[in-house]
Simulated assay, not measured.
Amino acid sequence: MIDSRTVEVVTDWVWGWALSRGTPDPVREHDGYRIDVGLPEHRVRYVLPDPRSAGPRAAGLSEPGTWLKVCGAPELVRLSPEWTIGAPEHLMSIELDALPLITPPDPYTVELLGTGDVRDAVVRTTDGGCAAKGRVVVRGRAAVIDVVETDPAHRRRGLGSVVMAELSRAAADRGAVRAVLVATEAGRALYEKLGWTPESPITAAHLAA
């Protein structure tokens, strides 16, 4: 049986991701959620909290540009060979209390853009260029952090931590008590240092377009 906590965190992430990416609302399915992304190489994605659902769900899918995001390690996700398995990912969360303020190092500055429940944090260079950025979406008491990236020329300067702190504080200011995200293997190390907790491994798979 899948832990209710995992289902709750997955639900938070699915809705926030859809809001962040501007897709239609997620559709509840018997085994998880469907998001109609609508891009040529990413037509639709299914998010499945139970890895045992992956095989049965995949058996009925054949259209290129179909994606699966499954809570579970790759060895638990049984798919046929036509599915391409992606690099490991991690569903993570953090409680938004006692958040530290992280000041960007000289000569960088950070600004918060947008209004309402969708906000973007951007770390600027002295000439106004973007050195690092990320987005947070608040839905009720949960927030989702998305599209966090640092320009390769500005890495290893703590800018990712600056972005995460700014987004987390913006979410707390909007009433969120928990934030969730899906991290890459490299991102997981940074987020754990910032106090984030792994909730589940995520296996991503797709049918190539």
Rank of each mutant, 00 (worst) to 15 (best):
A143L: 01
I85N: 06
K133F: 14
M1I: 14
T109S: 11
L167W: 05
A189H: 14
A18Q: 12
G22H: 03
V148R: 08
V10C: 07
V147Q: 15
P152A: 00
S4F: 10
A58R: 11
P100Y: 04
D127Y: 02
L112V: 14
T125P: 10
G175D: 12
E75V: 13
C130K: 15
A58H: 09
T6L: 15
T115M: 05
E41M: 05
G22A: 04
R178Q: 10
Y191R: 13
P56T: 12
T23S: 03
V136E: 01
A18P: 14
T184G: 04
S168F: 00
S80L: 11
P104R: 04
D106N: 09
H206G: 03
V123S: 12
R5P: 07
V123Q: 13
W196K: 05
D173G: 10
P26S: 05
M164G: 07
G134C: 07
P26Q: 05
T203G: 08
V137Y: 01
T11I: 13
L79K: 11
E75S: 14
P56M: 11
D50Y: 09
L101Y: 08
L76K: 14
L76G: 14
P49R: 01
D97A: 09
A131Y: 10
R169V: 05
P24V: 09
I202A: 00
Y191A: 08
A189M: 12
G32Q: 05
L99I: 04
A59V: 01
S62L: 12
D97M: 03
M1E: 14
D106G: 10
